[in-house]
């Protein structure tokens, strides 16, 4: 104890200030530790996902001795043939094609809808379009797949006299699925454009559309790009909805109406039917690793866009 000559009142104040409350201290530290552990868990999860998927996915090349370049570039996928051929190029191509198609359809629609709801009719946008978009986000992917299967595939079949299961069907289903993502992210970017910019343009005699096109879209470009890339990332990783409508053949498609396969559909269909540790099974894990790497790539693109956007402002 400190040797102070305290008056009664002084000691009261000093006692309150100087005695530490063990219980409070413990509680405070425990709370902090719990919160930190929860946060650290996120890192652990990401690291272990990367580690486990990578170690399984790489064993195709290091255990089964399949060449990486052949794996990526071979157009023939025949894991049960003699000799087995593991060429995942058709899957990779399918994933990219279907993602690009979805983005081509959804980007103009999504950004258009975002302009509509921020610039043209903000009231209607907020009251009707925004809830509609949020509901679309909430619809599970198997439901999109189911609708694609029962509505879209037969429609394409009848219109074009083909199988129906096709790149086109996959692209359309995915476009619908990523439309809400693109719309809401683009809407955020557009509404972040300062009103002064719009006023300045309008004051110079520009029409509303000229203002939107030259000023608003120009200054929200990084945000709109972010929206599109986020949508593409979602499309690239989507499994069941796509798998249900694309037909899943490993032949290279000749047109929009041909069936295709994607990395996700290949994994979904075969992972349950192959035996752990076989080269076939490992090849599927390598495809999963490709998916994982692609999502890292998407994140990097997003970061680069984000950085560019900040520099421009």
């Amino acid at each position: 104890m400190t040797h102070r000559t305290d008056t009664p009142s002084q000691s009261g104040i000093a006692r309150k200030m100087l005695t530490s409350n063990k219980r409070q201290w413990t509680e405070n530290v425990t709370g902090r530790v719990i919160a930190t552990v929860c946060a650290a868990l996120l890192i652990i999860v990401v690291l272990s996902i990367t580690y486990f998927i990578a170690s399984k996915g790489l064993s195709t090349f290091f255990v089964n001795g399949i060449s990486i370049t052949e794996f990526l570039s071979q157009v023939k996928w025949d894991p049960e043939g003699e000799p087995a051929v593991y060429g995942v190029f058709p899957f990779i191509l399918g994933s990219f094609l279907v993602t690009t198609l979805a983005a081509l359809i959804a980007a103009p629609l999504g950004i258009g809808a975002a302009i509509f709801m921020i610039e043209l009719y903000p009231n209607f946008g907020k009251k009707v379009l925004k809830p509609v978009i949020e509901l679309l986000v909430g619809i599970p992917s198997v439901v999109y797949g189911y609708v694609g299967l029962t509505l879209l595939v037969p429609f394409i079949r009848e219109q074009f006299d083909v199988l129906g299961f096709s790149l086109l069907a996959g692209g359309l289903v995915l476009a619908l699925m990523i439309l809400p993502t693109i719309t809401s992210v683009a809407a955020d970017a557009i509404s972040a454009v300062p009103q002064d910019l719009r006023n300045a343009s309008l004051a110079l005699g520009a029409t509303r559309w000229q203002t939107i096109w030259n000023v608003v879209l120009h200054s929200s470009l990084p945000g709109c790009l972010t929206a599109i890339v986020l949508g593409m990332a979602r499309a690239f990783g989507e499994a069941l909805a796509v798998q249900m409508v694309i037909g899943n053949t490993t032949k290279l498609p000749g047109s929009l109406l041909d069936p295709i396969s994607t990395l996700t559909s290949g994994i979904t269909l075969n992972m349950g039917n192959t035996i752990q540790g076989t080269p076939y099974n490992n090849a599927l894990w390598s495809m999963a690793l490709l998916l994982l790497l692609m999502s890292f790539v998407f994140i990097m693109i997003l970061r680069i866009i984000g950085r560019k956007g900040r520099v421009n402002k």
Partner: peptide
Amino acid sequence: SIEVLSSLPSIVVGL
């Protein structure tokens, strides 16, 4: 990590 986790395809999480 949060960014990575939220952009992971759900099939990868399943695997």
